[in-house]
Design a protein around this nucleic acid. Structure first.
Length: 419
RNA sequence: GUGGGUGUAGCUCAGUUGGUUAGAGUGCCGGGUUGUGGCCCCGGAGGUCGAGGGUUCAAAUCCCUUCACUCACCCCA
């Protein structure tokens, strides 16, 4: 019989890795809590319309990467490609904004995009996602970036590289868009096929193109910064001031646009040189029009997403010393009476919260000792026929090799030795 | 969707110009110690050489097809 394998691009996270996942999650929860964020958990399946409206019809994600299907009732559903739209949906659906327009939320979970898998890119991947709703002040932009970098440092990420930009708002962006379109229109012949197509749908994306000829053209193009309206200019300047206040190193990259249509004003990205082509560990920005776009009132927002797998790939070596969950006690039993006794004792200790293991296979003492060693147990309790008669067992310390006699009838007299 | 690379034991990999029963290390199980782990020694299990077809007296090895994985493009976290 053939074994059924996992779906392409979908990965199992095996027991030897889950310790690192838990460690990173724990750091995220600590840091986000310090900044006043609370967890929200939203479904991974949404109506397709939510993403079409939220992310933008013309984006690559919506156009060709979503897992979309009709369920048995005929509804058009999509596995979420990102978390922001879902969080805002929940925020509006439960009227959280009515009770308190300010909501600082985070969620951690799987996202789905049907791309060709490669290093740092899977079809099911995980994001750590933060969304701050209801705050317009530029100091919040700085705070969000500060929190992100603090989190990344707390899990040991080395040499994060921060880039920031302002994409303008719905007042000044259309003008910029038009000027880029005008600029590119004259040079259409020199653009690659993709970029020619983008010209109508999403001209700003030409900035992301890596074809050399396109880059040359783009280098001549007018930057966003010059076309920002007064308010956006002030906002961006204030964001930079707050970054400076916390000694956050950054590079302004006027060519950084982002793949999701909803971003306005502040956009940022954290990259490292160690990831190969998929060099972005985290990215985010402000989306002041999105809540309204999704049917809510005019409420500003800002957020970011961290690529969980990418972050782990960058920090895995440093997290190797995450303490393993090895048993405190191994009970090696010889003979049926001792086995029965050990089974009862071991499980009783487990009910008290002790991490206890035994080998229920019919093996000799040597085999059981080997297993205890492999599992990393600090102590082994040895029980055989002799011990059952004298009611005294051997408790061995596997690190020192010392062995002491302990009472089988009164475990409380030696339990303090465990750990 | 486009291109490159790689597929041999659970894992990491050898395998000569095509040649007889496909190997090593590691891991697993057992023995050396009739009741004591690590180090050492010995043994065992474990493979349709990714799959299908072709060339040949003979294919892990050469050819074709296909699949999987992987890297890069694209895009993004």
């Amino acid at each position: 019989m053939e074994v059924v394998t996992a779906v392409k691009g979908f990965k199992d996270i095996l027991p030897e890795e889950t310790g690192r996942w838990q460690y990173v999650e724990a750091r995220a929860r600590e840091v986000f809590a310090a900044f006043g964020c609370r967890e929200i958990r939203v479904p991974i399946l949404e109506r397709t319309d939510l993403f079409a409206r939220g992310i933008g019809e013309a984006t690559d994600i919506v156009e060709k990467e979503m897992y979309t299907f009709r369920d048995r009732g005929g509804e058009c559903l999509t596995l979420r490609p990102e978390a922001t739209a879902s969080i805002i949906r929940a925020y509006l659906e439960h009227s959280l904004h009515v009770a308190d327009p300010v909501a600082k939320l985070y969620t951690i979970g799987p996202m789905f995009r049907r791309e060709r898998p490669q290093r740092g890119r899977y079809r099911q991947f995980h994001q750590i996602d933060v969304e701050i709703l209801g705050h317009e002040a530029p100091c919040i932009d700085g705070e969000v970036i500060l929190m992100l970098l603090h989190f990344l440092r707390s899990v040991g990420l080395k040499a994060p590289h921060l880039e920031v930009n302002s994409l303008g708002c719905n007042i000044c962006r259309p003008g910029y868009r038009a000027s880029i379109q005008g600029f590119l229109a004259g040079r259409e012949a020199d653009l690659c096929g993709d970029c020619r197509r983008r010209l109508d749908t999403n001209p700003l994306r030409v900035f992301d193109c890596k074809v050399p000829s396109c880059r040359e053209i783009v280098d001549q193009a007018p930057g966003v910064t010059d076309s920002l309206c007064g308010e956006c200019r002030d906002h961006f300047a204030a964001v930079l001031v707050s970054l400076d206040a916390f000694d956050i190193a950054y590079v302004i990259n006027p060519r950084m646009v982002r793949g999701l249509d909803y971003y306005t004003r502040t956009a940022f990205e954290v990259t490292t040189e160690f990831l190969g082509a998929q060099n972005a560990v985290a990215g985010g920005g402000r989306y002041d029009g999105l809540v309204r776009e999704l049917g809510g009132p005019d409420i500003p927002g800002i957020g970011f997403a961290v690529g969980f797998e990418r972050l782990l790939a960058l920090t895995a070596e440093d997290l190797d010393d995450v303490p393993p969950f090895s048993p405190e006690l191994f009970i090696a039993a010889l003979g049926d009476p001792a086995r029965q006794f050990a089974y009862a004792l071991g499980n009783r200790l487990r009910l008290q919260g002790r991490r206890v293991e035994m080998d229920c296979r019919p093996r000799g003492l040597k085999g059981q000792m080997k297993r205890a060693d492999k599992l990393g147990c600090r102590r082994v309790l040895i029980v055989g026929d002799r011990e059952m008669e004298t009611r005294q067992a051997e408790l061995r310390d596997m690190t020192t090799g010392e062995q002491v006699r302990v009472s089988l009838d009164d475990p409380s007299s030696w339990e303090y030795l465990l750990v």
